[in-house]
Design a binder for these strands. Sequence first.
DNA 1: TAAAAAAGTTAGCTATGACTAACAAGATAA
DNA 2: TTATCTTGTTAGTCATAGCTAACTTTTTTA
Lengths: 228, 228
Amino acid sequence: MTNKINLNNLTKSEEDYLKALFQLLIEDDSVKVGNNQLAEYLKVSPASTNNMIKKLKAKDYVISEKYGKLDLTEEGKAIAVRLIRKHRLWETFLYNYLNFTWDEVHDVAEQLEHIKSQKLIDELDRFMDFPKNDPHGEIIPNADGEYFILPRITLSSLSEGDVCQLVAVDDGSVNFLKYVSKIGLVLSSEIKILEIREFDKSIRIQFDNTVETVTRKFADNVFVKKVV
Amino acid sequence: MTNKINLNNLTKSEEDYLKALFQLLIEDDSVKVGNNQLAEYLKVSPASTNNMIKKLKAKDYVISEKYGKLDLTEEGKAIAVRLIRKHRLWETFLYNYLNFTWDEVHDVAEQLEHIKSQKLIDELDRFMDFPKNDPHGEIIPNADGEYFILPRITLSSLSEGDVCQLVAVDDGSVNFLKYVSKIGLVLSSEIKILEIREFDKSIRIQFDNTVETVTRKFADNVFVKKVV
DNA sequence: TAAAAAAGTTAGCTATGACTAACAAGATAA
DNA sequence: TTATCTTGTTAGTCATAGCTAACTTTTTTA
Ligand SMILES: [Mn+2]
Ligand SMILES: [Mn+2]
Ligand SMILES: [Mn+2]
Ligand SMILES: [Mn+2]
């Protein structure tokens, strides 16, 4: 009787629900996650999530009381972290070896993360010499299933005159990523906040001798660490 | 209106059926393929294949008359060939870059061949510098969808005294492939037929200073070209 | 604190892709 | 040529995973 978690008898859907719940639980730190919120995140109906949550509770991956909020068991979390590890390793492979761009990697990694083979992911990791971060700057969970969150704040939380360094970008929107690339921002870019316009909260930033004005919504998706 | 075939709206099952039918049609050259034969090959019930064939006929990938034999349309064939291309490119990647063994690649490639991304497969091909053969010796169909069959005969078809070179092995059985590796046979091995025992058709062969006796069944799965 | 809104649940439907059991058509053999 | 076997088809069932519509519970607001 080993202690190893069996990742191999979950459907693609079950995996996606566990990963989504994990991501909602860490995003809104300590804020409870509800059924409808999960439904909206996954773009399915509340009836669908309610149904799946029942199944995942029966399998001891999810905990919740009737009409109550959702939580993951340790096993549920472990499965989610392994999926995130696979997702980010594949994104790194596509980006570093197969000429995929920032905005192209996510959708294909969404498919590749469900391939069932422990050896495949171990060897991919070794082949790339155990990368630490994915192309969007996020930390890749290690083989032991340890999940670390990059210390970061959003660009929108800074004040005029602050200087920061780009550490990660949200990879949820292709259009956003194309936009980031187009204006020339890359990981580690040093960004100075020139001006925050009170009227619409738009922000004038400077980096690499470029000056751009970006919206608050844009700045919410850019993660930085403060330098000055 | 382009001439391109849309590979992206087929389910995994539909793809597997088209590929299976293609492989049966080229294996038993010109011999007709029936519903039950396809069912046995795919290890599903005849009712299941009958059902799927109806769907594939409606989509114009398969041709057949009621109670008649099965055939693929040009479009059906093109989809099958593209799947085989993906399968063999992934096997090559796993074998050449990720330390997978001969017998390990097939099952994972069965999953990877269904990932939907044209760029992924084009770039994987380029990354490996356009390999011509997969790890079992089979020819990888090119990007234009051309399918070539390796000129070959089975080891079992040779006579005493013949000398041949191993060009491919059947990749259907893990146990068979492990056995081939264990006795030391590799692609391009030069094999001499020392003796064919009439009693049970077992064959004594010699290669690289090794002498082995193999069964007829084994020799049926070893593909060679005659040297002498 | 009662009404309204939001959140969660249930019932019943659909599609896909398996299955078994019963049946029909075609091929083979006596 | 008729009986038998093989092959193919159909009907009906199940599991998975979606959906809508109706309902219940909880939370918020007036
Ligand atoms: Mn991603
Ligand atoms: Mn996914
Ligand atoms: Mn194979
Ligand atoms: Mn397949």
